[in-house]
Design a protein around this nucleic acid. Sequence first.
DNA 1: CTGTTAGCGCCTTCAC
DNA 2: GTGAAGGCGCTAACAG
Lengths: 338, 338
Amino acid sequence: MTLKDVAEHLGVNASTVSRALDPAKAHLVNAATVDRVRAAAQHLGYRGDHVAGSLRRRATATVGVVVGDLANPFIAPVIHGIARALAAEQMLPLIFETQDDSERLAWGVNHLLSRRVDAIIVAGARFGDRRVLEAASTVTPVVVAVRGLPGSPLPHVLHDDRAGGALAARHLIELGHTRLAELRGPMDIGNFTARHEGFRDACRDAGVELVSGADFGTVPSRDEGERLARALLDQATDHPTAVFAHNDLMALGALAEFRSRGLSCPHDISLVGYNDSPTIDQVDPPLTSVAYPGAEVGEAAGSLALQLIARTGRTVPGSVFHPAIQVRASTAPPIDGS
Amino acid sequence: MTLKDVAEHLGVNASTVSRALDPAKAHLVNAATVDRVRAAAQHLGYRGDHVAGSLRRRATATVGVVVGDLANPFIAPVIHGIARALAAEQMLPLIFETQDDSERLAWGVNHLLSRRVDAIIVAGARFGDRRVLEAASTVTPVVVAVRGLPGSPLPHVLHDDRAGGALAARHLIELGHTRLAELRGPMDIGNFTARHEGFRDACRDAGVELVSGADFGTVPSRDEGERLARALLDQATDHPTAVFAHNDLMALGALAEFRSRGLSCPHDISLVGYNDSPTIDQVDPPLTSVAYPGAEVGEAAGSLALQLIARTGRTVPGSVFHPAIQVRASTAPPIDGS
DNA sequence: CTGTTAGCGCCTTCAC
DNA sequence: GTGAAGGCGCTAACAG
């Protein structure tokens, strides 16, 4: 059942049917004809072919979304936000998972381009991906979301992770801690370098000691958090009285390590996480965490993509969300004299 | 840069280029020509047009994925599993969110059909959606995943929620509880009716009292869990000594309500959740929960879709995963004499 | 307001 | 092993 079939059934031209069924063009057609066409289309069970339309129109109403790992619980709200924003224009997200592999990202971005997506939102970029993404942006709009690419002119929707790191540090310093440590995420991902820099600089500004090696996680997982916490506490030097984990998963790993050593949190050691994940307020102890507005970032990225599609070539400003810290029971003043 | 451009550049026919660049057809072409074509394509930056190919080939290498709500943390692993399975055939998921609205689902399924997706995986069906989905299945393969449609002949990939409900009941009964209650999810979603039936029947078989109204949640959220727990405990009759919440979010709501009433879990009341969500083992108290293998279900659904695409018309069996219960500290024997 | 024409870029015959 | 031709279904441009 094609446009032509409907047209022949009615004794009109396919173009007329095409126009009558397009809400944006129906006004060009006699109202009575529009009704007849709609009725016939309904009656015959006609369903337009979006693929053929996309080929002709040179637009697919589809936005490629590149993510590192869908299993990471913090990415779901981002996709949710993107889908919400796109739904306003009846556009749909086409998901590609890189599994945090730059080769796969390059392949995926190219594949999305060959699928003629109207824009690409990259929520899982690593520094090394900059060239590939900037090249892609000469073909279709590319929005960098969640994970920034320092120095890149690509439009972006980010969260100020540097400020978030500083927030964590200042919170601990205000509680009276003077020996802090970090459990760092991978240093080729913008979020984690920014969290690190914010934390480190705030410590330096306050003249507070930063107890930590140069080590960092290969992935920001619970296991890596546990490993780094173990390494930190195995050090012969004085233990820190407070720890900043670069995300909640790593914080949970650290918590497990603390527990296995008989260290009580926050009595013996305070802990701050990042993301303010859904149930993190109900762990034992409820975790102090820097909030990450994933759904808002996703929605803003989706809207930005829509704007870039609408006014191709025009410059559209990116946006940066500001962090807030949720203080809970995992942070407390240090024990006197420790 | 089209196929034709590459062909003209080389002085060959577009068909030859098309064949040379298709791994499955390259063997029909002189090896030397294949090399020349590949080199030229690379050199000229040719990128095939997947849209045009899809129109001609009548296949899009795309699978529509219909979900209720991406913000529900339990759906992320399912999509992850689907994406993993599809990636094996270089297919991509196109996501549509119904927001648990049947009209939106009907619209979305139709839209996906007009986009000529090669299959649709529905992970968010409600009973009322059966007709729409069966109609869609005459056009393209439809796989029902996660939420079943009792009585429907559509191929499905599910988890045995009935057995899961029974598992929860038997665990509590073995601990010695004799007055149980349920916090039920929406009764037009297959998972929750099945959990209810399994729980209820296991109680009946054991001759154990089921303290509970006919009430159930409108959505399976934390707030609804809290509301139902409040209603349950407001009843004048004897309180139950153990509660089965139909998912972890509802369990967390119940936990909050218990706490606000000064009821300690598991001392005063035991609690079982469902899904075994990522951080649920670290809440206070660590929650006993029936595990839901979301990623496995998603991967099986993706594989099933691929099979249905490959052998259209052939019957392919669905599959059902069996539940397991993770026992943690939120369940304990009842206080003697209570 | 409606019809005619001409492709969008590709792939699959069919012919040689 | 390669070329020529046709058409997938739609819509934009141009006439009338």
